[in-house]
Write a protein that binds this DNA or RNA. Structure first.
Lengths: 151, 151
DNA sequence: GTAACTGCAAATTCTTTGCACATAT
DNA sequence: ATATGTGCAAAGAATTTGCAGTTAC
């Protein structure tokens, strides 16, 4: 099941920033809002481009710095999908990344299936798991059909 | 269980290269041997540095090009662990990457635990899985002890 | 008022590419 | 013999950094 709306309070970023001694600036707000409005993963460049499109241009250096702060506060998380680093709002619970090698789209799906795997790692290897990211490469449904028709 | 020696025939690269129309050069041999001798992941830079140390310097451009060929032949595989791309000899079977966020070392462990997870993805989501990489971040045993003693 | 933040431009880092020469087959 | 591969140097892409001016608190 694809992750849909999740009722993330928009004010969350503001209070999280302030209680940590950071300041709530127009730029940080904009970066956060951009990520919140999308349910997909966005690269830093995509965020910058989106903001420029809405005449709210933010310098790329600032986009990167904002992403860094938001990540430090645990509000967003990132993973390397393909070439770039992609960012998304941090949601509780596991999810995997499905990257289509044909069209490049990256979706995430929820699930608790990783629990036994992580337990194995913790028990068998004395490794303290902090976070886990399962990146699956392959073909999405659309591209499977496309590739089947042109052999 | 950490992956140890696996009896990889050293000649594998040579024949794989030749039957695919590639040439077996000193540089490709060196890059392959370097990866074979290590059971850990190596970045392109680490491979280059290792070769320089043994007075067998290979230009970085060539290291990258060699890695590219070896990967195309399926002899090695790579994943993005942390900042860099890391390379390792391709072994059959699943394995996960354990990245210690404290000391940075990346190990891999074997296991078949991912099978049910991937089945879930295939069945429930009509996504054709081609490869999967589970990257687990956390603290390795050594660093857990270290961090426990200094709170 | 002042420490934190931003934009700009320059620096860095990792990786790729163009080209003349070298080498494996 | 000749297509492939290499080294070198230069280009690229993504991200970081230094700094003077700006802004949130």
């Amino acid at each position: 099941m694809l992750i849909g709306e999740m009722g993330e309070p928009a004010a969350r970023a503001g209070s999280a920033l302030r209680t940590s001694g950071y300041r709530l600036t127009r730029q940080r707000q904009l970066v956060w809002d951009t990520l919140r409005r999308t349910r997909r993963h966005l690269s830093a460049e995509q965020i910058g481009a989106a903001l420029k499109r809405q005449e709210q241009a933010v310098d790329m250096a600032t986009v990167y710095r904002s992403l860094d702060v938001l990540q430090r506060l645990g509000l967003i998380r990132s993973s390397r999908l393909g070439e770039r680093q992609y960012f998304e709002v941090a949601e509780p619970g596991e999810h995997y990344h499905l990257v289509c090698d044909n069209c490049g789209t990256a979706n995430h799906i929820e699930g608790e299936d990783l629990a036994p795997v992580l337990r194995h790692i913790t028990d068998g290897h004395r490794f303290a798991v902090r976070s886990a990211d399962l990146i699956v490469h392959g073909w999405c449904e659309k591209c499977q059909a496309k590739l089947a028709s042109t052999p």
